[in-house]
Amino acid sequence: MASNPVGRRSHFKSRAGCLVCKRRKVKCDERKPACGNCTRHGVPCSFPSRPESAHSTPAASQARSDGVAESVSPSAMIPQSLSTSTLQLHDMELFHHYMISTCYTLSRTPVVQAVWRDEAPRVGFTMPAVLHAMLAVSALHLARCDPSRRDSCITQAHRHHELAVCMVTPNMPSLASDNGAGLFLFSSLTCIFACAGARSEDNSFSLFEQGRLANWVLLFRGTKTVIDYSSDDFSKGRLGPMFSNGHDAAAARGPHAMEQGQMYTWELKQFICREFSQDHQQLQVYEEALIALNKTLGIVLKPHEEPRLQTADIFAWLLETSEEYMESLVQGAPVALIIFGYFCVALRQIEGMWFMEGVSGRLMSQLSSLIDERYQGWLRWPKEQISWTPNSISI
């Protein structure tokens, strides 16, 4: 009786696996309605409408016997959430617009642009939430490029955004460990969507929502948690160029940048030291936030120089600030709000990127409305730097 060679297990070749496993070239257990792989990764699972059988056409049989790959139906390349039964022409248009235009606007660095163009869609084909987030951002970008279609594009943007959030929220813990790259891209795209959406409807872009930090702030800070706890090696994986660019930004945030930034916050620091001379714990919280902010301002406000800034140069401050500072911010502590007002000066420097337009002014409007008259003078310098007035209207 024939037996398998020692040390080698019998192998069951999946012939009727789901479309996602076929696309990923991994073994499928063929369990329905959702196979084990798709269940574990929290992605929609779908099977071919007609599984392979012994009655395959001669041409198909010959192709398999010759080792020639069979042609893949276009529908097999589309996640179930965007299957041909529900796929609309405007969805295809949004994907096309993303590939030829939007992806190049998400960074000023060519190698990072290439990641948004090549790798983000590949991740999206295995994690539909990322694909929907891409289409949501693409729709907002198209609305900006073609104002005559603004209303319809914004409607589509919010549809894809809501689908993305619904898909990823229930599976957040498993995705963080199994698909860290996808979760990082989803968080980044959602932050871009929030910033770009500041001009889409009623100018509603804020730092707080219902007594807590806005989702875009939480998501952005959450990217550090994804990086720390994911099994993915971000520096060497498919998103590597994003993180090598981030290392350059981190290197720039050295002692020289901090020293350069101190000239803009020196008076504020003296004021904070006087205000909290008896509360050393809170003084330390604010001083640490100010030190990190000095590094940011030192990079973006170099005299006689116009640095080629990236979003990483600016938003690094949000990752470096402590939970204690963020809690003071949520509670509406005047000094915490003032420090964030100074951060708006840094945000202003990247408003040349379409999704950042008007963000600093909208945040300053909210901060100004929350700060008591006694402290309004401390917002004078940042207001001047971003050309903000009570009657100013952001783009």
Rank of each mutant, 00 (worst) to 15 (best):
V115T: 05
S3Q: 10
A69T: 05
L106Q: 08
Q88E: 15
T109V: 14
V68G: 04
P110Y: 05
T102N: 05
S83I: 06
A114E: 15
P5Y: 05
W116A: 04
A69E: 12
C18W: 00
W116H: 04
Y104H: 10
Y104N: 11
T39Q: 08
S61E: 10
R40N: 10
Q88D: 07
P79Y: 04
H97N: 03
A63W: 09
V111L: 13
R23K: 06
A16C: 13
S107E: 02
V72A: 10
C38A: 01
C103R: 00
G42W: 00
S3T: 09
S107I: 06
F95K: 08
E30Y: 07
K22T: 05
T57S: 15
S81L: 09
S3E: 12
H97C: 02
A2L: 14
T102R: 02
P51R: 04
S75Y: 09
K13P: 01
R24A: 13
S53I: 08
D91E: 10
G67W: 00
D66C: 12
S107L: 01
F12K: 08
S65G: 03
Q113H: 05
N4F: 12
P110I: 02
S107A: 06
K22N: 04
E52S: 14
S10H: 12
S53T: 15
A114T: 14
P44E: 13
R64C: 01
V112P: 02
C21G: 04
Q80N: 12
K25L: 10
C38H: 02
T105M: 13
A76L: 07
D66V: 07
T109Y: 10
S65T: 06
C45D: 02
R50P: 08
W116G: 04
Y98C: 09
P48W: 08
S49L: 15
N4G: 08
E52L: 10
C35V: 00
S46H: 12
A69C: 05
S3R: 11
A54E: 11
V26Q: 03
C18R: 02
E52Y: 09
L82T: 06
V68H: 07
V26D: 03
S10D: 08
A59E: 15
A54I: 13
Q62W: 08
G42S: 03
G36K: 03
T84W: 14
T84Q: 13
C21E: 01
A114F: 13
L19Y: 02
R15A: 14
T84E: 14
L19E: 07
T84R: 13
S85R: 13
S107M: 05
P44A: 11
Q88A: 11
T102E: 06
V43E: 05
S46A: 15
P51H: 08
T109A: 12
P44M: 11
L19K: 08
M77F: 14
V115K: 00
V72L: 08
